[in-house]
Amino acid sequence: MGKTLTKTDLAARLVDQIGLNRAESRELVDALLNEISTALCAGEDVRLWGFGNFILRDKAARPGRNPRNGEETVIVPRRVVTFRPGQKLRKKVEGHE
């Protein structure tokens, strides 16, 4: 396991490579992630060619259990987001060691 990249690291590269200032870069990283979230919340899948697809799935209600007290409950129906990595990304990471 290597290090952890954060929004700050992503923004720093934009400063270096596009010449945006620090605040603009950070704002742009936030704007990008926000726009993806907003699309997903509006029911839109987000397909980024080469990188991967963020796909929404609707899950039905199912019986569950509260892990803390063992009580049986119903897990409410929900929408979840899944990520299907693109071919290019898969190829890039599969044999890293």
């Binding site: 396991m1 290597g2 290090k3 952890t4 990249l5 954060t6 690291d9 992503l10 590269r13 934009l14 490579q17 596009i18 990283v29 990008l32 980024l48 080469g50 990188f51 290019k88 990304l89 890039k92 990471v93 890293h96 060691e97």
Partner: peptide, 16 residues
């Protein structure tokens, strides 16, 4: 650049 950076990080087994 952002998606390339994430991909590069993953290729080095970094967590993003």
């Amino acid at each position: 650049l952002v998606f390339d950076h994430i991909a590069e990080g993953l290729a080095q087994n970094d967590r993003v």
